[in-house]
Design a protein around this nucleic acid. Sequence first.
DNA 1: TTTTATTTAGTACAAGTGTTTTATAAAGAG
DNA 2: CTCTTTATAAAACACTTGTACTAAATAAAA
Lengths: 194, 194
Amino acid sequence: MPKIVNHEKRREQIAESMWRIILEKGMEGATVRGVAEEAGLSVGALRYYFKDQDELFVYAMRLVNERVTGRVMDIAARPLPPREKVIAVLLEIVPMDDERRAETDVWFSFLAHLKHRKDLDGIPEHAVYEAIQKLFGLLEAEGALRPGLDRELEAERLYSIIDGLALHAFLEPERLDPSMVRRVVRSAVEAITL
Amino acid sequence: MPKIVNHEKRREQIAESMWRIILEKGMEGATVRGVAEEAGLSVGALRYYFKDQDELFVYAMRLVNERVTGRVMDIAARPLPPREKVIAVLLEIVPMDDERRAETDVWFSFLAHLKHRKDLDGIPEHAVYEAIQKLFGLLEAEGALRPGLDRELEAERLYSIIDGLALHAFLEPERLDPSMVRRVVRSAVEAITL
DNA sequence: TTTTATTTAGTACAAGTGTTTTATAAAGAG
DNA sequence: CTCTTTATAAAACACTTGTACTAAATAAAA
């Protein structure tokens, strides 16, 4: 009957506008007015798609998560030897180019904000820990895991390396170059696989 | 002539009030009014000690840095075998108890805020990278470093582990227990020392 | 006690905030 | 065309923010 708009697409557009604002000005810049302007909409129009700021926040955060997990699952489905598959997945999680650095940036901003907003519902889990547990499961099932390892310790170590690299790519992108990230990830995986 | 107040002590008290607010409500709660109330002062009094919010911010951040580096240097001065000294220093950087977890929490809040406030002057350096370089220098000088290592790679790996652990202690303190932190740090150091 | 530098409380204001209300425009249905 | 539904815009509301300013209070020294 009326002007037909794809609601889901619009919501994604608005969420992506929010990401851009967060990248430029941080979480504090992600005001309703700011996001609306970035999206080329009025405040009223934005409210038409999200009932309040919190709903937009949760949606935008979930969307980051969906994009990343989608790409990771694509890689996990590829026919690769176990060790190479693990490396490929980890290199997809750690930010290597500007686009994924931006993703990490926004994700960390969301996480930090969340520390003091425990009332929000529908927040996705921080999936890296679970991902690493699954990767260890894969290596073990394929018999590619080095014997005699303390699996709990090695998982924690690998988890720290991945998020540490991500954090450094976020905080000091000019110092940490992608080839070094690649070398650290590869050596960390080779140390625990046959 | 007038009422003599130890200015520096007062400034430290105010900065510590700011830390407490940031811990509870995050950076967004650290308003001038909020900090003043937490410190039991009027807004005018706070303004008397810090000309504006930015000056307070920079001061409070520098104070965190000073406290941490002070404790690290104390440990570095202790007469310990190289490997144990390195472990002790790293365990001082990674948050193990509530007090130091709080410190890390505040530090990350400051850093995240800083990403979008490049105009601020007098911000201290993120000293962990330099500290790790120095620790490698100590190990090498003492001949405690395992031969044949790619030092640049190992430094980056250790740096990632330390900040990854710190990040996890910050984001998911309930999951990551101190004994695991200790084990990860110890095994990481033992892997590169004789 | 007077002087003088310091300290505080209170108020004011412009800018910015999330949210709500009201009005308007667009697009198909009858 | 008119009418109804959807979509957007604009303005208003109630509140918080950083900053500025004033007047009062305080306490040590002369």
